[in-house]
């Protein structure tokens, strides 16, 4: 009798080990879900307008740039470069992990001097500066300077930007 009880208890012990594992994982999963929604709530709040605007060199000296455009952060895992931040583009804007860049990308997959966006012939061009992990325009890796169009997605590491041309600029500029 005691032998049977002992066997049952032994299996129960092993069962409880897995029951504990299961309960822990379930709570962790639930917590992940909650943390995720916790993160997205303030971001949807800020989506109506840019949370922060950075005026970059080049755009300041001209009161009305000929062709204005901006980069909006669509996704960024790092809080230093928050989602919804927008950068107004001037004549030439450098992107990278180094602090000297116009747009500092605090991402481990970004190179120090990662990419450059410059104006040439009333159009914005993006060029990869030989970065290790590449610059992706609409998820295609850049291998030559490419013209940016309104709505293009530019991804560097885990950070995704959207390129936005100012709508009124098209009307007043031409």
């Amino acid at each position: 009798m005691a032998g049977i009880l002992l066997t049952i208890l032994r299996y129960l012990f092993l069962f409880l080990l897995y029951a504990f594992l299961f309960v822990v994982v379930r709570y962790m999963f639930r917590g992940l879900h909650k943390e995720h929604s916790f993160i997205t709530v303030p971001d949807t709040f800020g989506e109506g307008g840019a949370r922060e605007t950075n005026i970059l060199p080049g755009s300041r000296d001209k009161s009305v740039p000929k062709a204005g455009a901006r980069l909006v952060v669509l996704a960024s895992p790092n809080s230093r470069l928050g989602k919804g931040t927008s950068f107004y583009l001037g004549e030439k804007v450098t992107l990278g992990r180094g602090e000297h860049n116009d747009v500092v990308i605090p991402d481990p997959f970004s190179s120090h001097e990662h990419a450059v966006i410059y104006m040439h012939g009333h159009q914005y061009w993006v060029q990869d500066l030989g970065s290790l992990n590449g610059t992706y325009l609409n998820e295609v890796r850049l291998d030559r300077p490419t013209v940016l169009a309104d709505g293009d997605c530019l991804r560097i590491g885990n950070v995704t930007f959207q390129f936005v041309r100012w709508a009124y600029e098209v009307e007043s500029g031409q």
């Binding site: 002992l6 208890l9 129960l12 012990f13 409880l16």
Partner: peptide
């Protein structure tokens, strides 16, 4: 959450101790 998980650990420990007692 911690409390609920501790209930499971308590059950685990007591079943283990019970097994050793019977053993």
């Amino acid at each position: 959450v911690e409390r609920k998980l501790l209930y499971w650990v308590s059950a685990y420990l007591l079943i283990g101790a019970g097994t050793l007692y019977l053993w």
